[in-house]
């Protein structure tokens, strides 16, 4: 029988990795659910953000401060990408193909600049951890959890309680009708697309804080984050975080009590269950 400390630490580790899944899925769910764009380039943007954090961090900048530079730049990139997709009226399925192309191009760019070798951000955050009872709480993971919760709640509240958010939801529901009520659909879509890319910058910073980077690792996250986004519900900002934590904790506990090799089955079993039980959400 595993000890309580082992189970607790494994569950906590699951919460932290789940928060990262949620953060990675936040931009993806918004662009998929509200803009009808299945943006695979989002994963490459996350890694580009991580590499830029690494580069600026190596130059002496605090990783959190790097967001002041990277997030606005990514916002512009996201808006430009949306302009391009809108200009050529790319439908949802084709966005998958087009953005896959962008993902490969961004991966090549990352590899060209930073090589295929592993890169690791050395920061003072990595050395800080606290002991709470029997459990250890590392600062980079805690930051990721805080940012994931903060951003998901902020976006949820903005969409629910502000005029801008209501207009965005109306546009996602029925763009022509929303436009008839005076909603500037094009501007809102640009804004949302930019925000999704900026969220990728935040996820990238968190990734750089807690993980060693390699360009090929972009692909390692796609499966589980897609599962998180689909289980969480498309366009629902809180969904990926909740689904991410559920999957992370399930994986963590699976690894604690059985062979770790079973853990990846958990996320996809949950996805299949969600697809079977809530087909109307997809």
């Amino acid at each position: 029988m595993p000890s309580y400390a082992l189970l607790g630490q494994s569950a906590l580790s699951g919460v932290f990795i789940g928060a990262l899944y949620g953060l990675l899925g936040l931009g993806l769910t918004l662009s998929w659910g509200m803009l009808r764009q299945i943006n695979l380039a989002h994963f490459a943007l996350v890694f580009l953000g991580a590499y830029l954090t690494y580069q600026l961090g190596a130059a002496g900048m605090d990783p959190l401060v790097t967001l002041a530079l990277i997030a606005p730049a990514f916002f512009l990139f996201g808006a430009a990408l949306h302009l391009l997709l809108a200009r050529f009226k790319v439908n949802a399925l084709n966005t998958l193909l087009v953005t896959f192309g962008f993902m490969v191009m961004l991966e090549s760019l990352i590899q060209w600049i930073w090589s295929a070798d592993f890169r690791r951000l050395e920061s003072h955050y990595g050395d800080v951890k606290w002991k709470v009872g029997e459990l250890f709480v590392p600062l980079p993971e805690l930051l990721t959890l805080a940012l994931a919760c903060g951003l998901a709640l902020a976006v949820w509240a903005a969409l629910r309680f502000t005029d801008l958010g209501k207009a965005m939801r109306a546009t996602a529901e029925d763009a022509p009708i929303a436009a008839a009520f005076g909603v500037n659909e094009k501007l809102l879509s640009l804004l949302l697309s930019g925000l999704c890319a900026a969220f990728a910058a935040v996820a990238g910073m968190c990734l750089a804080l807690s993980h060693t980077l390699a360009p090929s690792q972009i692909y390692a996250w796609i499966g589980v984050v897609f599962a998180v986004v689909m289980i969480g519900g498309l366009g629902n900002p809180l969904g990926p975080l909740v689904a991410g934590v559920v999957i992370g904790v399930s994986e963590g506990l699976t690894m604690a009590v059985t062979a770790p090799v079973w853990a990846p089955l958990v996320s996809f079993s949950l996805l299949i269950a969600a697809l079977l039980l809530r087909p109307e959400k997809f």
Binding site: P2, S3, A5, L6, Q9, S10, L12, S13, G14, F16, I17, H211, A220, W221, V224, G248, E251, G252, L253, T254, M255, A256, A259, P260, V261, A263, P264
Partner: peptide, 19 residues
């Protein structure tokens, strides 16, 4: 313990080794 190649989260594995 066996884990899949490409595993991202080693938290639980580390906890089991420690245990």
């Amino acid at each position: 313990l066996e884990y899949e190649f490409g595993n991202r989260d080693f938290g639980a594995i580390a906890a089991r080794v420690k245990d």
